[in-house]
Design a protein around this nucleic acid. Structure first.
Length: 191
DNA sequence: TAAGTGATCTCT
DNA sequence: GAGATCACTTAA
């Protein structure tokens, strides 16, 4: 019997970032585009308009203003204000002058926290997946939904606890010995 | 292992 | 306005 595909809405993301992070593993990131994508060499998107759905297999949680690795640690700025907004919205920023990072805002308004999507399908690395899916700053502050061209679906994949590998987050040494070592990176380890 | 890249933020 | 930093990737 065909498994129903459920689009995850704001209620899914209106929880603690650590809960959302674990539960995102095994869900599908779906990208559709009605627009023709110019850069065919680096993007998977075509003129066919068929959505691309990729299994989410690596994420990191940035849990709040007290998290010294979280961008929101210095308070609300032009860049981070989206994290202070409602859940289920998209936070995209540029890193190292080259790579767009895709994040999903968690928890209610005025509590800044988010999930960084680090790996989907065959793509490891947060910069690679945004390039392949043609995700850039134009998605910033938008809501995850079909009309945005980017959303998340539950397609019935069951992920058990022993299939989740937990490690410190990548590239956050600046956060100091405590927060840089928090086990807030989650990797789906299916064999 | 280190260069590349540019927005953002923290000082002046 | 200048300077440092940065939730990364690639080529070597």
């Amino acid at each position: 019997m065909m498994q129903k595909h459920t689009i995850l809405d704001q209620s899914f993301f209106n929880r603690d970032a650590l809960d959302v992070a674990r539960n995102l593993l095994g869900k599908y990131l779906v990208r559709s585009s009605t627009a023709w994508i110019r850069d065919g060499s680096s993007s998977l998107l075509t003129t066919s308009g068929a959505p691309i759905a990729l299994l989410i297999n690596e994420v990191e949680a940035y849990v709040g203003p007290h998290d010294l690795a979280c961008h929101a640690r210095v308070g609300k700025t032009a860049r981070t204000e989206v994290m202070f907004g409602p859940p289920g919205h998209i936070y995209v920023y540029l890193i190292y002058g080259m790579y767009w990072m895709l994040n999903i805002v968690t928890r209610p308004e005025n509590y800044p926290s988010a999930i960084l999507i680090r790996g989907v399908g065959m793509f490891d690395g947060p910069g690679k997946l945004t390039k392949k899916l043609a995700i850039d700053q134009t998605f910033n502050k938008k809501i995850l939904a079909p009309e945005t061209g980017l959303w998340v679906e539950d397609r019935g994949v069951i992920v058990r606890d022993h299939e989740i590998l937990t490690t410190p987050r990548i590239g956050v040494d600046y956060a100091g010995p405590i927060w840089s070592q928090k086990p807030y990176r989650f990797v789906l380890n299916k064999h």
